[in-house]
Every structure is written in structure tokens, then in C-alpha cells.
């Protein structure tokens, strides 16, 4: 089986000279629920931005379901739905318009998109708000709007960059249930988060990156087992501190 994501020796140096990725290798299996962890500035968003073609890589190879970013970029785009770290919708547009326009960019006609949007918006608790301008939504609703927008073309791979940042506990649990169901229905999910209990709760595989390098890549089960069922948070802190000490 081809992996959902295959990253080989990925490097990215920004124009400012910052070396954000220093040779990242990652294989993410189809159907996985994958946690991409690391402190601020580790390079998580940079990886996601490269996967979604918003940032160009400096070197290395990236494949999405076997399709190379270099030769089959359009194909890779049809597979991915992305929820970025920062809000990036037009605040003057209505919820339903943001969703249907996004669908249109994937070649889905508006009438079809309105039909497809209904169950998604209902499930995410946004149906009542569908005719509101997006700026009138609460922070948690804005996040869920971005999730709805990412799902409208039924992607096989859903990438979420800190989707629960600033979301209250109850709503976060609702989001967890939703993502678990998506994953159970076959969607591969990649998630970044600073809430380690969230990763522990949801994800089957975990990668920890620091300063643009992968420090650990392991199944959650084995990782917790090998560390005597210690909490993920303690393991994480050890790995980050360890790698920081080595580079100092």
C-alpha cells in the first residue's frame, strides 16, 4: 500500500536565511491518525505549508498518495483538505459562501456544494450560522468553519494545524469525537497540537520535531509502552530538552 504522505530529506530555508527544515523524513500510512508535535518554531507549519503547496520546498521529495509534488501537484491538491493555524477566510463573506466558493475551486458546482455542506455544517454546529458573515462567529466557530471548508471536497487526507488552540474544553471534546469519526470512516488525519493529552487521546502515530529535525517517530502505543506507560508529556519534555542540550 502506498503511504498517504511520504517525505524524504525535506529541507526549507526561508528568504530570511532561517533554516526551518533540515532534512525531514516522514512516512504516514493511509488511514493513520498522526500527531506532529514540537515546540513553537520547530517547523510543523512549514511542513504543512509545503504539503499544501503554499510554500515551496528548498529540496527533498514529497509524495501524497504516491503523487509527487514536483510532477503531479494538481493531483496532490485534490487529496488534501487543510485547516491552517491562522484564520484565513474573508471576514465579510458569509459562512455558506466561504464553503461553496471553496468547493467551486475544486470544480464542484454550487448547487452540489450547498447540498454537501448541510450535513457538515450541521455536524459542526454551524448550520444556524450559515448566512452570517464569518466575522460574527466566535473563535471556536471560526475554527470549525475552517474544518468545514477543508472537508467540502471530501479529501482523503485532512491536515489540521493546531485546530484546538483557544477552543474551550467542551467544544474541544466535540471536535475530538468528530475527528475520530472522520478517521474511522477512512480519512487519514495529521494533527499538530500543543495539548499532549489530546495527541495521546486521538493519535496512533506520533512524530516529535525540534529545530527542523525529526527527533522521534513511533507508534503511540509502543512509545508509551517503552517508557513504562509514562505520560506523553513527560516523554516529550525529555526528548525536547535532550535535543536542545545536544545542539547548545
Amino acid at each position: 500500500m502506498t503511504n498517504a504522505v511520504s517525505i524524504k530529506n525535506l529541507r526549507k530555508t526561508y528568504k530570511t536565511g532561517v533554516e526551518a527544515l533540515k532534512g525531514v523524513d516522514l512516512e504516514i500510512a493511509e488511514g493513520d491518525f498522526f500527531a506532529l508535535l514540537g515546540p513553537n518554531g520547530a517547523g510543523k507549519s512549514t511542513i504543512i505549508s509545503i504539503l499544501t503547496s503554499l510554500t515551496t520546498k528548498s529540496s527533498g521529495e514529497v509524495k501524497i498518495f504516491g503523487n509527487s509534488l514536483d510532477t503531479d501537484r494538481d493531483k496532490t491538491k485534490t487529496y488534501i483538505g487543510v485547516v491552517p493555524q491562522e484564520f484565513n477566510f474573508n471576514i465579510f463573506e458569509k459562512v455558506i459562501d466561504i464553503i461553496t466558493v471553496q468547493a467551486g475551486y475544486y470544480g464542484i458546482p454550487r448547487a452540489q456544494a450547498i447540498k454537501d455542506a448541510e450535513p457538515i455544517l450541521k455536524e459542526l454546529g454551524l448550520w444556524e450560522k450559515k448566512d452570517s458573515p464569518s466575522q460574527q462567529l466566535s473563535g471556536g466557530m471560526k475554527r470549525r468553519l475552517m474544518i468545514a471548508r477543508a472537508l467540502i471536497h471530501k479529501p482523503k487526507l485532512l491536515i489540521l494545524d493546531e485546530p484546538t488552540a483557544g477552543v474551550d474544553i467542551e467544544m474541544r471534546r466535540g471536535m475530538w469525537d468528530f475527528l475520530r469519526r472522520m478517521n474511522a470512516e477512512g480519512t487519514t488525519i495529521i494533527l499538530t497540537t500543543h495539548y499532549l493529552e489530546e495527541a495521546e487521546e486521538l493519535c496512533r502515530t506520533v512524530a516529535i520535531i525540534n529545530k527542523g529535525e525529526v527527533k522521534l517517530h513511533e507508534t503511540m502505543h509502543k512509545l508509551l509502552e517503552a517508557n513504562g506507560k509514562e505520560k506523553l508529556e513527560n516523554i516529550y519534555v525529555d526528548i525536547i530538552q535532550d535535543s536542545n542540550n545536544k545542539t547548545i
Binding site: I80, I98, Q102
Partner: peptide
């Protein structure tokens, strides 16, 4: 405005040429 507000990303992540 689309660039500044970043909603340009909506079309950039899509397969629209």
C-alpha cells in the same frame, strides 16, 4: 486584499491552475 487577509490561500491550495 486576498493576499493580505490570506484568503488567497483558498484558491492556492485547490487544483485550479
Amino acid at each position: 486584499f486576498a493576499k493580505w487577509q490570506r484568503n488567497l490561500d483558498e484558491v492556492l491550495v485547490s487544483p485550479t491552475p
